[in-house]
Design a protein around this nucleic acid. Sequence first.
DNA 1: ATATGCGGTTAACAATTTGATAATATTAGA
DNA 2: TCTAATATTATCAAATTGTTAACCGCATAT
Lengths: 224, 224
Amino acid sequence: MSIVKKILIADDEPDILEIIKFNLQAEGYEVITAKNGNEAIDMAKQYQPDLIILDIMMPGKNGIEVCDILRMQPAFQETLIIFLSALSDEVTEIKGLETGADDYLTKPIKPKILASKVNALFRRLNKESNGVLQYGELKIDREKYIINYQNEDIILARKEFELLALLASKPGKVFLRNEILNQVWGTEVIVGDRTIDVHIRKIRQKLDLDCITTVKGVGYKFEL
Amino acid sequence: MSIVKKILIADDEPDILEIIKFNLQAEGYEVITAKNGNEAIDMAKQYQPDLIILDIMMPGKNGIEVCDILRMQPAFQETLIIFLSALSDEVTEIKGLETGADDYLTKPIKPKILASKVNALFRRLNKESNGVLQYGELKIDREKYIINYQNEDIILARKEFELLALLASKPGKVFLRNEILNQVWGTEVIVGDRTIDVHIRKIRQKLDLDCITTVKGVGYKFEL
DNA sequence: ATATGCGGTTAACAATTTGATAATATTAGA
DNA sequence: TCTAATATTATCAAATTGTTAACCGCATAT
């Protein structure tokens, strides 16, 4: 998932589209829009958004149909989906949620509240606890930039630290080299092939602890 | 997380407590209740619920205070929290969501909708932790790139892993050699006839488990 | 101003692993 | 039985990663 989250909004009312777009952009999201159901599906496939906001009533395919279609494809099984609806019909709302949506908002939309809900959903999805990670005798303090192992502080350089902190943020998960580059170096910077390896090497050396495993052809993972 | 999800409800109105409790139990959840903020904190610590539903206005500590206190503790950083409120005050709602709640519902509560929202939250939570396929004693963890059989980790090379993961994604389905080539090798790459066989062979060898069946003249399928 | 050290990157090469192939054996099914 | 399809095995080239040393830029100390 990209660092700047992409949101796709689909609604046939241009005014609503604009209001929502404006407010979400103000929150720092990248916003793309669609005017109807079919367009929404096309845009979704093209841009792979992190969140899709679907109006229920749209010409062509309605929101629930769009949700159904997208959810059937592996690429959109994890994508966040929020429904918007003019009708506060209980049955429709329940049906919407059971179709696989993550939330259901009734119009009139209050932009600030929508933004809060969007933030809440992304917060939950990232579940990045910004504090101290601790695994056994190893402590990683992401605020103070300090590693502590067996009660000894270990100094890592910034890139080394960020790399370790990233891997340790989800123990066991294999991070692809691409993911690592995006998260630690950013999408703009381009560095050579061996850069990651060299940093990994330094971490392994300084920590003198076998906690980073290579998964050849895939990436690296942290585990004790 | 336990298989039966535990939900803690905190509200000072006994009627509401009962209605919600009844409906969530009907959905198969285990429900515990608290009559005020302090009780909610105690119960949360004691029972470690998966979801906490907090009324905002309660005697003693109000819902937002409770949420704040719980969120400060590591044990409750991941716990789902929903606020209930009689006031549909926009400012309070935004504040509630930013305190770290996952949803905010205004009274009057519609029990069915609450249940749907609860289901949606748990559905989302499960999706996240699940890149894992499990069949009996065999686990295939796509995120960790690990096969686990009878509590032993088995390391497969990338192609082997992807091949097994593909077959196991639809147990019983026979995958044509062509399908396999397209999914695992991609449409560009062209490899010889025996390549798939050799990989299948290696998987069978490493797993020491008869889970891949040859369908002569057609393809391969996964089944236990 | 000059020297020193650190962080970050790269290049070059070594070490390792993977994946494809060829050659041969075996099997399932007509 | 006979044949096409698959299994098996060893081998080798290619891909990937590990390791080391060198380089550059920057900050800080001399």
